[in-house]
Design a protein around this nucleic acid. Structure first.
Lengths: 222, 222
DNA sequence: AACAATAATGAAAATTCATTCACTTTCTAT
DNA sequence: ATAGAAAGTGAATGAATTTTCATTATTGTT
């Protein structure tokens, strides 16, 4: 999983990062609210952990801003305050859960699992800029009208959007989109990318799918 | 939309039924909680309206029992009581919204729209008995293992399950599954039903898809 | 029981889609 | 600049799926 931790207390941040990384996750640490917003806007995360008290922008304000942008990424707030009113406020602003310091790593982990599962099984719409994927109906809409994608193109676009902002290797793409544990000797990915590019290029003919020579693809995160 | 109204006050029930029917919906009225549970277990509804005070089984108890069965159908409670505590109780027991009498038809309608939209965009799993459809991943699982359906077969099964218990005409099926506004002169539906039947028949070779001569198909509820 | 309408079936035809291939272009390191 | 690797392209292939068709079976009505 891709995890973003926004926490100004370096000791806590590092300890969490170490624990999560050991479990096989990728962790990024933002040291204030501003950075958290910046990261969350450009990179895909499975879950975002926000400290309530942070320099520049508070966790709850970060939460509000993330939701304002239309993102439904799971958010868990961490805080020393245990007053119930805060909890209500947090949940009203779109946080998915709330953990009171001090907490055990296991407790936090359990809550992350619960929140991520709830999220993953509960979203029909995947929105990227002006492109909207209707995941169940498998339709793709833009302000210019519906785009008709084949099954593979749709799966690939979904994968790209979910992982926007980070480089996706051919190995990963093969595994997640084609269900293959190896990279075929043919150029099947490139061929599908070609067709997808043609269909989703914008008015200016600019494309969102960037090739990173020797590494894979990068879906531009606005 | 398919709407179930559980309301013992005949005057209110009829007035609501008239209004909803005029807007092109199909309405069923249950005159007590027992009937409401019975209907909701055997027929698909897009939304269920429950009066709080009803003979035999109260609305809130009906709500609890429906949720107990695993159904996530949108439920709106109607009540004369306006005390906040009841609202909390209702929402805790799994109701999606709560409307206080007297209410205007427009208000109720707006809440239905909101609740149905929220529901439709938020379910990945569609469960029918021991068949589970993973709507986004498009996989079908049973205790006997995964069933591999083609795209059309999957869409048709989804439609059948969503409308279990009521007869579906070929016109409706054509429109919703094939996106056609007319029924083709060929037997395309029958052919697809045949293949679907073969794949989802149970251990005894019994099938869930029943033909209603001259009317359409019926997906056996329960 | 006989008829007409409707539905089911198996196989063929048509279509669509995923994949491959041969070739061109682009990129990076030297 | 250039070679070699990587990525892109358009067309062809092949496989899977959707649709059609001819035929048989079933159902409801008389």
């Amino acid at each position: 999983m891709e995890i973003l931790i926004a926490e100004d207390d370096e000791q806590i941040a590092n300890s969490l990062k170490k624990n999560f990384t050991e479990e096989g996750n990728h962790v990024m640490v933002a040291k204030d609210g501003e950075e958290a917003i910046h990261f969350s806007n450009s990179i895909f995360f499975d879950v975002i952990l926000l400290d309530w008290r942070m320099p520049k922008v508070s966790g709850i304000e970060v939460c509000r801003r993330i939701r304002e942008n239309g993102s439904k990424v799971p958010i868990i707030l961490l805080t020393a305050l245990s007053h119930v009113k805060n909890k209500v406020e947090a949940l009203n602003l779109g946080a998915d859960d709330y953990v009171t310091k001090p907490f055990s790593f296991d407790e936090l982990n359990a809550r992350i699992t619960a929140v991520v599962r709830r999220y993953q099984s509960n979203t029909n719409e995947l929105i990227f800029n002006d492109i909207t994927l209707e995941l169940i109906g498998r339709k793709v809409n833009t302000p210019r009208g519906e785009i008709y994608l084949t099954a593979k193109e749709f799966d690939l676009l979904r994968y790209f959007i979910l992982h926007k902002g980070s480089i996706m290797s051919k190995e990963e793409i093969c595994k997640d989109v084609w269900g293959l544990d190896f990279v075929p000797s043919t150029n099947i990915i490139e061929a599908t990318v070609k067709n997808l590019r043609r269909k989703i290029e914008d008015n200016n003919g600019k494309n969102l799918i960037k090739s990173i020579y020797g590494e894979g693809y990068l879906f531009i995160a606005e």
